[in-house]
Simulated assay, not measured.
Amino acid sequence: MALTPERIDAIAALAGRLFADGTRLDAVVRAVREAHPDLSNVTGAHAAVMAEDAFREEPGFNLYLVDGTNHCWLITNKPETATGVVIAQRDEDD
């Protein structure tokens, strides 16, 4: 299943609202999973540990797309192959 631009916008908007309200990363991930149960992978991380370039940079977090169609999932910049997301919280210093 591809992620449409509208769906990516909805995921980023939900995560952004929750982070702005002071919600912890694990709760943000849980809320995105609940809102998008058909995604194969919704994971949280800290931006400092991510080696790849973000698909989108939002205030306070980066959004990475995940391609989980093969045995191992990988970060992709292609929404048409994305099956999930990584929400990577940035420190205030980032």
Rank of each mutant, 00 (worst) to 15 (best):
M1I: 13
T4C: 08
T4H: 06
P5A: 12
E6Q: 10
E6N: 11
R7Y: 07
I8C: 07
D9S: 14
A10N: 15
I11T: 06
I11A: 03
A12K: 09
A13V: 02
A13F: 05
L14Q: 14
L14D: 12
A15C: 09
R17N: 11
R17F: 01
R17I: 00
R17E: 04
L18G: 06
A20G: 05
D21T: 00
T23E: 07
R24L: 07
R24V: 02
L25E: 10
L25Q: 09
D26A: 01
D26N: 10
D26C: 00
V28C: 08
R30C: 00
R30W: 03
R30A: 09
A31K: 12
A31H: 12
A31N: 10
V32S: 12
V32L: 12
R33I: 04
H36Y: 12
H36G: 08
D38V: 02
S40V: 05
V42F: 08
V42K: 05
T43G: 10
T43Y: 08
A45W: 11
A45M: 08
H46G: 01
A48N: 01
A48G: 10
A48L: 11
M50E: 14
M50H: 08
M50A: 06
A51E: 15
A51P: 14
E52R: 07
A54T: 04
A54V: 05
F55V: 08
F55E: 07
F55N: 05
R56V: 01
R56M: 04
R56Y: 03
R56A: 13
R56F: 01
R56W: 06
E57N: 11
E57K: 13
E57F: 00
E57R: 15
P59D: 00
P59C: 00
G60H: 02
F61A: 02
Y64W: 10
L65H: 07
L65P: 10
V66C: 02
T69R: 12
N70H: 14
W73L: 12
W73A: 12
L74C: 13
L74Q: 14
L74A: 10
L74M: 11
I75K: 11
I75S: 14
T76L: 13
T76P: 15
T76A: 14
N77W: 06
K78C: 09
K78V: 13
K78L: 13
E80K: 03
T81N: 11
T83G: 12
T83H: 04
G84C: 14
G84A: 03
V86F: 05
I87H: 05
I87W: 10
A88E: 13
A88K: 04
Q89G: 05
Q89N: 02
R90S: 03
R90L: 00
R90Y: 02
D91S: 09
E92I: 06
D93A: 07
D94K: 10
D94V: 05
D94P: 03
